[in-house]
Nucleic acid binder design. Sequence first.
DNA 1: GTATAATATGAATACGTATTAATTAAAAGA
DNA 2: TCTTTTAATTAATACGTATTCATATTATAC
Lengths: 335, 335
Amino acid sequence: MSRKRSKTKGITSIEVAKKAGVSQATVSRVFTNDPSVREKTKEKVMEAAEVLGYKPNQLASSLSSNKSNIIAVVLSDVTNRFYTKVFAYLTQCLQQFNKQVLFFQMRSEQDISYIINRVMEYRVDGLVIASPALPNEIAEECLKVNIPIVLFNRKVKDLDVLSVCSDSVEAGRMIANYFLDHHYTRFGFIGGRTTTTSGERKKGYLDRLAERGVTECIVEEGDYLYDVGRAHMNRIFQRENPPNAVFCANDIIAMGAVDAARFDLKLQIPKDVAIIGFDDIDISGWESYAITTIRQPMKEMVEEVSNYFYELEQNNTPQKGLRLFPCEMVERKTT
Amino acid sequence: MSRKRSKTKGITSIEVAKKAGVSQATVSRVFTNDPSVREKTKEKVMEAAEVLGYKPNQLASSLSSNKSNIIAVVLSDVTNRFYTKVFAYLTQCLQQFNKQVLFFQMRSEQDISYIINRVMEYRVDGLVIASPALPNEIAEECLKVNIPIVLFNRKVKDLDVLSVCSDSVEAGRMIANYFLDHHYTRFGFIGGRTTTTSGERKKGYLDRLAERGVTECIVEEGDYLYDVGRAHMNRIFQRENPPNAVFCANDIIAMGAVDAARFDLKLQIPKDVAIIGFDDIDISGWESYAITTIRQPMKEMVEEVSNYFYELEQNNTPQKGLRLFPCEMVERKTT
DNA sequence: GTATAATATGAATACGTATTAATTAAAAGA
DNA sequence: TCTTTTAATTAATACGTATTCATATTATAC
C-alpha cells in the first residue's frame, strides 16, 4: 500500500474545465482575470470551480508565470516594537495587491547565507530589509538575479536599490535645538549598536550642538536594550559634571535611562535630567514612562515601500535611490 | 523589444547536468540528498552548480514533490509582545528543518476567507493559528484538504488538530491562592476579549476564590489594551468597597491598571491595591512597572509546535489533541 | 447576404524539478 | 571468467498553470 502522494490531491483547473465544458486554458484565463473571456463563460467556469472547491495552485502558477507573489521581509529584531508595527502594516499593504510575506530573521551575520539561499530558491518578487546589520552580500546576490530590493532605514551608496529612511540627522538636530531652546546646559547621548541610524542620530545632534557653541557631550554606545541603556545612564552619572539633558537612540534605551535616573540615581525627571528617546513606541506614551520622543512617519514610509512593489507589479519602473522622511517630535513628561 | 520574461532566467538543473556531464535526474538527486548517488558524482555536480551559481527552484520542486516547505502562521495581534516572541522563536525552530514562515494577520473575521484562500493556494505544509478569534472556518477548510493545523493557546473540541496551550485555568487558581495566602480580602478581575484564554484565566481565579469561601469579585472585561485596562481599573474603583487585589488577563491591561492606580486614583501599589498580570513580557520586568505576573513556558510550547511538524516531515504520525503546559508565577513589586 | 475585422476559445507547449521504470555499471559469488 | 545481485544512472513523464499560436465564433461594415 505505498501511497507516497496524498490521496486528497487538490482539484485542478483541468477538472474544472471538464465540468464547465471548456478548455483548461479558459479556466486559467478566468482566474487570471483575462478580459478576453466572455462574461457568460466566466460564470460557467466560476460555478464549476465553486462546486468542486477549486483553488488555483499558486506554486504551479508561479512556476509558469515566473512570479511568486511572495515578498521576503527580513528583520533583525522582531522584538523592537517599531519594526513590529512596520512589519504588520507592510504585510497589510502588500496584501492589498495580493503579495504574501515570507518572514526572515537576521539575528547575526551567519544568517545571511541562509536567507540568500531561501530568497533565491523561492524566487521571491522582492525583498525588504529592515535591519541595521550590513546586508551587502544579500543585496549583491539578489541584484545579480534581478530581485528588487528595498532597504528600510538603511542607506547604501553605490547600490541600485530603493532606500526608505527617516531623516535621522535632521531629527538629531531637532533634539539639539530643543534642548538648547529649553536652556539645558550639559549634554549626553546614549547610542545603540553602531549602525547607520544610531550614528546619524548622533551626528545630527552633536553637529547642531557644536553649531550653537556646545562642544562637550558625553557619549555612550552599546545596544538597543533596556539593560544596556540603564547601565550606560549610570555610567554617565559616575562622571563629574554629568549632563542634564540626554538623548537616547531609541525608546527602549530611554526607558532604561529613565529607570536608572529614577531608581538608581534617585533623580527627578525632568528637573534634574531630561531624557528624549526615539521611535515613539506605544509604551513611551504610557504614563509611568511618558517619554518625550521622536516619531518616524511609519505609515508613509511603509506605504512608500508597498507602492514601489505595486509599481513594479504594473510593469512600471519606479525610481530607486534614497527617499527621506522627516520626523516629528512628541513632547511628554521627560522634558 | 517585447521581453515579457526576464532575461536573467535562473540557472536550471538541466544546465548544471550538462556542465557536470550527468543527467538532470542526478542533479535533482544530489540536491535532495538521495543516498543512491555516488560520492564522486555528487562532487562533480556540486562543483558545476557552484560555478554556475545554481539555486534549486523551490517552486518547481514544490509542485513536483507536493511539498512547499512553507508553514503559514496566523497571528491576530503582532503588537502583543508575547506573540511576537512566539513568532520569532517559532520561525527560528522551523528553519532548523528548512521550513519557511508565511505570515498572516487576522485583524477581524473578515480576514478569514482571504487567509483560507492563500493558505490553500500556496499548498502550505502546515498552519499555526495563534489567535483568540474563532478560526473554525479555517480549520474545517484546511482539514478538508489535509493541511495539518496547530492551535496555539486556543482549544477546540471535536477537531482533529494539535492544540498547544498553557494551563490558564490552573494559572487563575494559582493567583487566587496567592492573593488569599497573602491575606488580600477584596478581589477584582479585568479581562481581555471574551476569548478562551481570558475566560479560563477568569474561571480558575473565580472558582478557586469560591472554593476558599470568597464569592464576591468585581469583573470587568473589554480588550487587551492599555487604555481599556486603565479605564476598567478606574471604573472598578468608582464602586463602593473596591478591591485590594486585582488580576488582569494580561500584562498590557495590568500596566493600564497600574497607571490608573498611580496617576488617576493616587493609590499606593501594593499597599492599597495589588495587581497581577499575565504573560511576563519584558516591560513587566522593567522597574517603572515591575509587575507581578504569570509566565507561560513559551519556548517549550513553541518547541512542541515545531516538533509536531518535524515528526510529520519524517512521515511519522504525531499525536494530536490537547497539550497543556503549566505556568509559573513571577513575583515583582505590584504584590 | 457576404467580406472583414474583432473577439473568444482551444490545442499545444513551456516552466523546473521529482520520481518511476528501465538501463547500465559495478560488486559479489561460483 | 561468467553469472547473479546490487548499486548507480538515465530516459521519460508527471506536477498544475500560463501563454503563444492557431482556429472558431461573433460582431461590424457594406
